[in-house]
Simulated scan of single mutants.
Amino acid sequence: MMIVTTEQVAGYAVAEVIGYVKGSTIQTKHIGRDITAGLKGLVGGEIKSYNEMMTEARKLAMHRMVEEAKAKGANAIIGMRMQTSTVMANAAEIITYGTAVVIEKK
Rank of each mutant, 00 (worst) to 15 (best):
Q27Y: 06
I77E: 03
A13Y: 05
I26D: 14
A69F: 02
V101R: 08
E93Y: 00
V66D: 01
I95L: 08
R58V: 13
M80F: 04
M54I: 02
N51G: 11
N90H: 11
E52L: 11
A91F: 01
V102H: 10
M1L: 09
L60R: 05
I103E: 12
T96K: 02
K59Y: 02
Y97T: 06
Y20M: 05
M80Q: 10
I47H: 10
I18F: 05
L39V: 13
K106G: 11
Q27K: 10
K22G: 04
T28H: 08
T5W: 00
E16K: 15
A92V: 15
T36L: 14
M82Q: 14
Y20I: 03
V43W: 05
A89F: 06
V21Q: 06
G98F: 03
A37L: 12
A69H: 04
L60H: 04
Y97C: 07
S24F: 11
Y97K: 09
L42Y: 06
I77S: 03
M80G: 05
E52K: 08
R58D: 03
T36D: 15
V14M: 01
K72F: 01
I95K: 14
M88W: 09
A13L: 11
T86Y: 13
G19K: 06
N51A: 13
A69W: 01
A89D: 13
V14C: 02
T28Y: 04
D34P: 07
V102E: 11
A71P: 06
V87N: 10
I35E: 08
A37C: 05
D34K: 12
Y50T: 07
A89G: 10
E16I: 04
E52T: 10
I95S: 07
T86H: 10
E67A: 07
Y12V: 08
I18Q: 06
R58S: 09
G38N: 08
G23H: 03
K72I: 01
A15K: 14
K105T: 11
A92C: 07
V101Q: 09
I3V: 15
A74S: 02
H63G: 04
Y20S: 09
G44V: 02
R33T: 15
H30I: 11
E67S: 07
M82G: 09
E46C: 06
I103W: 08
E67R: 07
K106Q: 12
K70T: 02
V4M: 01
A89M: 04
G98A: 04
A91S: 13
K70Q: 05
G73N: 01
M2T: 08
L39N: 06
V102P: 15
S24Q: 15
N90K: 14
M88A: 15
L39A: 09
E46F: 07
Y12Q: 14
L42C: 04
S49Y: 03
R58Y: 08
R33N: 14
E93T: 01
Y50H: 05
I26K: 11
A92R: 07
E56M: 08
E104R: 14
V101M: 06
S49N: 08
A57E: 00
E52Y: 05
V102I: 15
T25E: 03
T55C: 02
G19N: 05
T96M: 15
V21R: 05
S24A: 12
G23F: 01
V17M: 05
M88G: 13
E93V: 00
I47R: 00
Y20K: 11
M54K: 01
Q27L: 12
R58E: 09
A61R: 00
K105L: 12
S24K: 14
K106I: 14
V66S: 03
R33G: 15
G41E: 02
Q27W: 03
